[in-house]
């Protein structure tokens, strides 16, 4: 690990040591997503094995682990994006607010409105910035009329910290923005439908450090109102933004717990090897 990074990371660690400590001490946050013995198969490949995890409300939970360990697969189970893959089979139980999302009575479209997602590569629709944000609220009938939509678009862009940069060019295509702006646009698009949970699949892996820092700040702000689950390859990022961390390895959930505990005092040998950079 480069030396100049260490002090900064130390600071962040100290910070996050205080913040969750302060809130957690009085009462532990309620569980938002509760996964029990989740198994995922791609045809004959057993990709995830008996994953059991509780994701706390209004916290940032990060999934870390080497490539191909199944953390993204698990993330995509939470809003059933895996349904779109023919050969994928999910077993077990995932509950959001105690309701099983794989139950027959659950409408997957409504589930995805409740559980938003931000992808690895910024993927704005090739439409205007305005239409990018307005699309979700429109198809879910959350807005009626122009003023309503205008307000929601403005509010969403403000919450994503993008309003000042784009307010004069809302009619321009979303793809004309820079990479970091595009990713914030995607976050604004996700929060426009007021989801309860936001899943982020390596949201910063295609961005430069400055854009990454802005997204991380944003994640920290959004945690007030949303439950956030983030998959990341960067352990510093996990340490910086999350309060809870889960380490995946070869389809197993090896260790989970408070972020500072995982990073300072991992129990499992594999976790220790991974976070000290010995593999992965």
């Amino acid at each position: 690990m480069p030396e100049e990074n260490t002090p900064e990371e130390m600071e962040v660690t100290v910070e996050s040591n205080e913040a969750p400590g302060a809130t957690q001490a009085p009462k532990a946050p309620p569980t938002k997503v509760n996964a029990r013995d989740v198994n995922v198969y791609y045809a004959d490949n057993h990709a995830l094995k008996d994953i059991t995890i509780e994701i706390p409300e209004n916290r940032v939970t990060s999934f870390i682990g080497p490539s191909g360990c199944g953390k993204s697969s698990f993330l995509r189970c939470i809003n059933r994006m895996n349904d779109t893959i023919d050969i994928c089979r999910v077993e077990g139980k995932i509950e959001i607010d105690s309701a099983d999302i794989y139950d027959r009575s659950i409408d997957v479209v409504q589930l995805r409105a409740k559980v938003g997602m931000v992808f690895q590569k910024p993927n704005p629709f090739p439409k205007s910035i305005y239409d990018n944000i307005a699309y979700g609220p429109r198809i879910h009938g959350m807005v009626a009329g122009k003023t309503d939509t205008d307000e929601l678009v403005e509010a969403s862009l403000k919450r994503a910290g993008l309003w000042e940069e784009v307010k004069d060019r809302l009619a321009q295509p979303g793809t004309s923005l820079s990479g970091g702006q595009q990713q914030r646009l995607c976050i604004a698009r996700a929060i426009a439908v007021s989801p309860q949970v936001i899943l982020m699949d390596e949201p910063c892996s295609a961005l430069d450090p400055i854009a990454t820092a802005r997204i991380e700040e944003l994640i920290d702000e959004l945690r007030q109102n949303f439950t956030i689950v983030i998959v990341t390859h960067s352990m510093q990022q996990a340490a910086r933004v999350s309060q809870k961390t889960a380490f995946f390895h070869l389809g197993e959930l090896v260790e989970q717990g408070n972020t500072e505990l995982i990073f300072t005092n991992p129990v499992d040998k594999r976790t220790q090897d991974y976070i000290t950079g010995r593999f992965g």
């Binding site: 809003n79 994006m81 779109t84 479209v109 409504q110 589930l111 995805r112 409105a113 938003g116 997602m117 992808f119 993927n123 704005p124 629709f125 699309y135 979700g136 198809i139 879910h140 995607c186 698009r189 996700a190 439908v193």
Partner: peptide
């Protein structure tokens, strides 16, 4: 994915 993720 973007559209499906938005709940379309």
């Amino acid at each position: 994915e973007a559209a499906l993720g938005m709940g379309a």
